[in-house]
Design a protein around this nucleic acid. Structure first.
Lengths: 67, 67
DNA sequence: CGTGAATAGGGTAATTAGGGAG
DNA sequence: AGTGTCCTAATTACCCTATTCA
């Protein structure tokens, strides 16, 4: 493997997450605002989501308690 | 374009499944609750159903009676 | 630096969940 | 046992415009 690997996680756009859950992109935004989904913001304010987390939620795997 | 397509299984809303089966959405919910139909939950608690599974049932795939 | 698509906002209808009774 | 309907509360979908993304 390469010597240096920038720690980059695969991110998903709101539209992609919405498609996977069969919901409206706005709904994904509400989940992020409600703290149900980890959101990473671009410098312009747009949201990106962790693919691993989304897949885990879809599979029905309970997310880790942050407590 | 690269492979920017997260493997997402086509899902159906309760209303869509109900229409396909010619039943009330509440009935579809009962099927899901009874485990007769695989249901995927949104983060808000709403159910989504696998299109492949629904179509298989509609297509008339023998349920392989165990008797 | 323009162009077209996507997203963030906010507000208002439409679905859905859940229980209960017929 | 299985289904359709009534109810309330919660969640989601569609409307708009301005901003950001690619």
């Amino acid at each position: 493997m390469s010597t240096r690997t920038p720690e980059a996680e695969p991110l998903l756009t709101p539209a992609e997450v919405a498609t996977m859950f069969r919901v409206d992109p706005k709904t994904v935004t509400r989940w992020a605002k409600a703290g149900k989904l980890t959101s990473i913001r671009t410098l312009g304010g747009h949201r990106r989501y962790r693919e691993t987390e989304v897949r885990a939620l879809l599979t029905g795997i309970p997310s880790q308690r942050t407590e």
